[in-house]
Design a protein around this nucleic acid. Structure first.
Lengths: 224, 224
DNA sequence: GTCACCTTTGACGGTTTCTTGATGGTCGAT
DNA sequence: ATCGACCATCAAGAAACCGTCAAAGGTGAC
C-alpha cells in the first residue's frame, strides 16, 4: 500500500484529505506541524508527502529542507498563496509540485498519482553496499553481518552527501556547507574527525580506506 | 548539458521558451507538432519534454502516450485550458506536471528545475577524451583502461582551464592567474613543471605531446 | 542533578604536495 | 655556425595537509 504523509494544521483540510486519499486506496498519516511532520516522516518513511505551507511552527521551506536532508520522497506542496515567488522558493527548496488552494480534489488526486507513479518506478535503489555493510539511506539503517551499526546525526548527513554522489568528488567546502551550514567552509578538522569515525564504522580496514577516499586538498569521494 | 525538447505550434511561444531556457544553460530543441515531436524525442533523447497541448496534428494525450511507450522522460505540459478534466487527463496519460497559460516564466523555470532534478540527476557527466584516457571534470576522475589516474589539486585546476577552452590557445599569464591567483603572471617555471606532470599522466608518449601542446613564447593549448 | 553521548577544539607526527633552483636541450635569429 | 631565448626534466627543501589521539563543552534522558 502506498503511504502518504499529510501535513496540515487545519483539521478540516487534513480530515478531507485523509478521507479522499483513503478512499482511493492510500494509507494516510497526518501531522499538524513541521516538527511532528519530520518525526513522522522518519518513522513511517512515506511514499509521498502532501505539505501545507502555512504551518504554525516552521517555515514551509524549512520542512522541505529537513526532508530533503535525508530523503528523496516526492513532496507535493499545498498553499493558499499563488505568488510566483512562493512557488519558486518551494520548488527550489526541493518540492516536486505546488498546488494553490482552493484546489480541485480530482486534480490533486491526479497529481498525487503522477507523483507516486514516479516514485514507484524510481530507478534509485535505496540501499548502498559498502564492503560487507549495507546502508539504507531511506530507513537510516546500517547493517553488517546481521549486526546493526549506529551512526550519529552528523555522521548520517556526511555519509548521505557522499553516497548521493557516487564516484564523484565532493569538495570540502560543499561537505561543510551541506552538513554544518553555509557559515562553515574552512573547518576541515570537522571533516577529518567525522570521516575517521565513518571509516571506523564502515570500512573493512579503517587504516586503508577503499570506499571513503580522501583527495588531498580537494575533498572526499565515495567509490561504490 | 541538460537537453529539453519544446513542443509548441506557436512560433512566438516556442521562441520565447527557447530563449529563456537557453539563457539558463539548457540545450533546447523545438518541434512544431506531435509527429515531429515524437521523432525528435527518439533522435535526441531529451532530459525533459515541455509539451503544449494545443497541437495541430495530434491530441496532447496521444503525444504523451507515444512518449510513454518507450521512455520515462519527465513531461511538463503547457495548456491554455484550466479545466480540471483536462489536467487530470494529461496527468493520468503520463504527464508529470501541468501549467496553465499564461504562465510566469520564473515559475516555469522552477518547475523545469524540479522535473530535471528528479530524472536528470542521472549520474552521467560530460567526459573529455585524451587519447585512451577519459577525463571527467565534474567527478574529478581520470581513467585509462579501467585504471584510475590520480591528479593533484593544482594539476586539476590547470587541466580544467585548458579543457574548458578546447582548441584555443591559453596564454601563460591567464593560466597562472586562473590557477595560482592574480599575483602570479611570470612564473613560467610553474607551468613547465605541472604541464610535464600532466603529460606524464595523460599523454600516450609524454616526450611527444599530442593533446597538451606548447606554443613557445605564448602559452599552451589542448587539442581534442 | 547526574550521567551518557555527541559535538567541538586543540595538538602532533608522518606523508603528500608545492615551491624553488639548476642543468641540459631545442629552435629560431643573427 | 654561434648565440640567446625558451622549454623539458631532475632534484631537494619548504609548506600544506591528513589521520589520529585526547579532552573540553553541550545537550537530552532519566
Amino acid at each position: 500500500m502506498i503511504k502518504i504523509l499529510v501535513v496540515d494544521d487545519e483539521p478540516q483540510i487534513a480530515r478531507a484529505l485523509r478521507i479522499n486519499l483513503s478512499a482511493h486506496g492510500y494509507e494516510v498519516t497526518t501531522a499538524p506541524d513541521g516538527a511532528r511532520a519530520l518525526r513522522a516522516a522518519a518513522a513511517i518513511v512515506p511514499d509521498l508527502v502532501v505539505l501545507d505551507l502555512g504551518l504554525p511552527d516552521m517555515d514551509g521551506t524549512e520542512v522541505i529542507a529537513g526532508l530533503r536532508g535525508w530523503t528523496g520522497v516526492p513532496i507535493l506542496v499545498l498553499s493558499g498563496r499563488a505568488a510566483s515567488a512562493e512557488k519558486i522558493a518551494a520548488l527550489d527548496a526541493g518540492a516536486d509540485d505546488y498546488v494553490t488552494k482552493p484546489f480541485d480534489i480530482g486534480e490533486l488526486l491526479a497529481r498525487v498519482r503522477a507523483a507516486t507513479r514516479r516514485g514507484g518506478t524510481g530507478t534509485e535503489s535505496p540501499v548502498t553496499e559498502i564492503g560487507s555493510a549495507t546502508v539504507d539511506l531511506a530507513a537510516r539503517e546500517v547493517q553488517r553481518g546481521g549486526e546493526e551499526i549506529r551512526l550519529t546525526k552528523t555522521e548520517w548527513q556526511l555519509l548521505e552527501v557522499l553516497l548521493r554522489n557516487p564516484g564523484k568528488l565532493v569538495s570540502q567546502r560543499e561537505l561543510l556547507h551541506r552538513v554544518w551550514g553555509p557559515n562553515y567552509g574552512s573547518e576541515t578538522n570537522y571533516l577529518r574527525q567525522y570521516m575517521a569515525q565513518l571509516r571506523r564504522k564502515l570500512e573493512p580496514d579503517p587504516t586503508r580506506p577503499v570506499y571513503l577516499l580522501t583527495e588531498p586538498g580537494m575533498g572526499y569521494r565515495f567509490r561504490p
